[in-house]
């Protein structure tokens, strides 16, 4: 807190609150999306047919054409909102870095992980969405081809854990910030969240392997 007795102009009114709501809602929206996304992509494990059917369903209902850009927009909005919290000044960066290293405190580390993964996701997620959305329709075969190409394999092997970590921590943090996770159940829910993240990464990996082995 700055020691300053200036009376701040509070004309900002409720804007901080609304922005915080939006940050949470976009985050929550993206989580939901990532879960659906998981269902879509992981359906390949049930067979190429399953994935194709799902993908066709989304396209036929125009959900991919409209939903895709919408997700892109949400993604961008969430980035803009959350970026308010990310230290961009080097002085702040070094402060938080030193602070976190000294503190030995897991939740503070988690936030750092969240901010770091966010940057990776921003870049890689955008590239990925661009690639997929400019090459509709989505089919298991096209996806498999991409991944078997090698570049995308490495790409997803990096992006996948980044996304899942960010999602997992984000989920936990929404719970903490809005008081659903309380002192009494924090330990249990944190474990639950870690396990969930682990499972999602595992499913993702299995999916990638499936794509690798799918005959085109």
């Amino acid at each position: 807190m700055a020691i300053d007795t200036t009376i701040y102009d509070r004309s900002s009114g409720v804007s901080s609150a609304i922005l915080d709501w939006l940050q949470m809602l976009t985050g929550a929206g993206l989580i939901l999306f990532m879960w659906s996304h998981m269902v879509l992509v992981a359906s390949v494990n049930l067979g190429a047919g399953a994935m194709n059917t799902l993908a066709r369903f989304f396209e036929d209902t125009y959900m991919a054409q409209v939903g895709g850009p919408l997700i892109g927009a949400t993604f961008l909005l969430h980035f803009i909102l959350a970026a308010r919290k990310v230290p961009f000044r080097t002085e702040q960066q070094s402060t938080i870095w030193k602070h976190t290293r000294a503190l030995h405190h897991l939740d503070t580390w988690l936030w750092l992980v969240q901010a770091f993964t966010a940057m990776i996701i921003l870049i890689m997620g955008s590239i990925h969405m661009w690639t997929v959305l400019t090459d509709l329709p989505i089919t298991a075969a096209k996806s498999a081809a991409r991944i078997q190409g090698g570049f995308w394999l490495v790409f997803y092997l990096i992006l996948l854990p980044m996304v899942e970590l960010h999602v997992g921590i984000g989920f936990y943090r929404i719970g903490v910030k809005w008081g659903f996770i309380k002192r009494s159940n924090r330990k249990g829910l944190k474990r639950f969240e870690n396990i969930l993240t682990g499972i999602f990464i595992l499913i993702g990996l299995i999916t990638i392997i499936r794509f690798m082995t799918l005959s085109i």
Partner: peptide, 17 residues
């Protein structure tokens, strides 16, 4: 009700701990 106040808190929970 501002970013200097409750909406600035990022839920780091070091305070709690």
């Amino acid at each position: 009700g501002t970013d200097e106040g409750i909406f600035g808190c990022m839920g780091l929970l070091a305070c709690e701990d």
